[in-house]
Every structure is written in C-alpha cells, then in structure tokens.
Simulated assay, not measured.
Amino acid sequence: MPDQTPHPEHSGRSLTIQRVDPILDTGVLVTCPVQEADGRLPDRHSAYHDNISPPLKWSNVPDVQAWAIVVEDPDAPQEEPFIHWMIWNIGGQTNHLPEGIGNEPRLLQVQDAIQGRNGRGGYGWFGPRPPAGHGVHRYYFQVFALNERIQMGPDTELKELLNALKARTIAKGEMMATYEAPTEQ
C-alpha cells in the first residue's frame, strides 16, 4: 500500500550546519536522552504542549572554548528553514544542557550563554508546531564546537551568527528529531 502521509513542502535554503566547514574533521556526537526510539520528540517539548527545551548531550572536542546550537526545521512551508533555537557561548567545559532552559536572552545558569530570537520572534526555544495535516517535520539540532566565544548580542540574526560560526568552528555535529501535529480527538 503506498504511503499516503502528507509530506511537507521544503524550504529552499540549506541548514546552517551545511554551510559551515569546521577546522577539524572530528565530529561531535549529539544525543537527546528523551527522544523516542522512532526519533520523535516527546509532546512536552512541542509548542502544542509545554514548549520546554529538550535535554541535549554531546561529545567533547579538544581545545573547545564555547559551544553554539542552532535548531532548524527545513520542512517549514517557507523560503528559509524555521529557527527553533539559537544559543551560543555555552562554556567549553560543558557537554550537555538540561531540559527546560529558560527563554531569557542571557542565561546565567548556563555560564552566561546567549539565546537569539527564534522564528516566532521570542528568545530561546520555540518547540515544534508543524501545521495540522502537514505531515512529519524534521528538526535538526546542530552543535558547533568553537575556538572562541562569539561577541554578539541576543538580537543577532542567524545570517550574522552563521558568519561567526564559519570563522570559529573547530568541529560540528547534528541530531535529527521528528514531530507531527497532534490529531484532533
């Protein structure tokens, strides 16, 4: 029987990670401890439910001074991938983020990390919220190991952050999660 699941239109732009060439060939292994076996993010992380950021873990890289994370949905029906999260200047000795990071632009509890604006205009995490009937969307959690901190504020746009990542990335890695709009009951 053919797959009759509606498939989303895709944005036309490459993901951030595809536009950054790291200094080293070493990859960064990225995992989400709460991700379900089929790759789906639990409901509590979606904007349909609690809209809290998921916990993340990643492998370490030598000489890393800071980390940056960009989460994008390339299946959004728009020209650019939808930005779900931009956070940078996570301390180099850190190899994880706990669940439920606040949505403040500057995070003291995460060693002075900075969060940029998501695709909805707020700071921090904005969870999956694919349109109903649009099918399964993919969410790419892109982690960048940096050789120095990024001196940019929370109103930095992704294109500016991308240029900073291009100049500072030692190694990179990604994890993909999925989510589909809940069905009406």
Rank of each mutant, 00 (worst) to 15 (best):
P2G: 05
Q4Y: 13
T5S: 15
P6I: 02
H7N: 00
E9C: 07
E9A: 04
S11L: 00
G12P: 02
G12F: 11
G12C: 06
R13V: 09
S14Q: 13
L15F: 05
I17K: 07
I17L: 13
V20I: 11
V20C: 08
D21K: 14
D21C: 08
P22Q: 05
I23E: 14
L24C: 11
L24P: 01
L24N: 14
G27M: 05
V28W: 03
P33D: 04
V34H: 11
D38L: 03
G39L: 02
L41V: 09
R44Q: 04
R44W: 00
R44P: 00
H45K: 00
H45Y: 13
H49V: 07
H49Y: 13
D50Q: 12
D50A: 14
N51D: 15
K57H: 13
W58K: 03
S59W: 10
S59M: 04
P62A: 10
P62R: 09
V64S: 14
V64P: 10
A66S: 15
W67I: 13
A68R: 06
A68Y: 08
I69P: 09
V70N: 11
E72R: 11
P74K: 09
P77H: 14
Q78N: 12
E79D: 15
E79Q: 14
I83M: 12
W85H: 15
M86A: 10
I87M: 15
N89H: 12
I90Q: 00
I90N: 01
Q93V: 11
N95A: 06
H96E: 15
P98W: 09
P98T: 12
E99D: 09
I101Y: 05
I101G: 01
N103Y: 06
E104M: 12
L107F: 04
L107I: 14
L107Q: 09
V110A: 00
V110R: 01
Q111K: 05
Q111Y: 07
D112I: 02
A113G: 07
A113N: 09
I114Y: 12
Q115I: 03
Q115S: 04
G116T: 02
N118R: 04
G119Y: 05
G119R: 10
R120L: 10
G122L: 04
G122H: 06
Y123G: 02
Y123A: 00
G124E: 04
W125P: 06
F126I: 10
F126D: 12
G127D: 10
P128T: 04
R129I: 02
R129T: 05
R129Y: 11
R129D: 00
R129A: 02
P130S: 08
P131G: 02
P131C: 00
P131F: 01
G133R: 00
G133Y: 01
G133T: 04
V136I: 03
H137T: 01
H137V: 00
H137E: 01
Y140M: 09
Y140E: 02
Y140K: 06
V143T: 12
F144M: 07
N147Q: 14
I150V: 13
I150W: 07
M152P: 03
P154D: 07
T156G: 06
E157V: 15
E157G: 15
E160H: 15
E160L: 14
L161G: 08
N163P: 05
N163V: 08
A164C: 10
L165F: 08
K166N: 03
R168D: 10
T169L: 03
I170N: 07
I170T: 13
A171S: 15
M176T: 11
A177I: 06
E180I: 06
P182C: 09
T183L: 13
E184K: 15
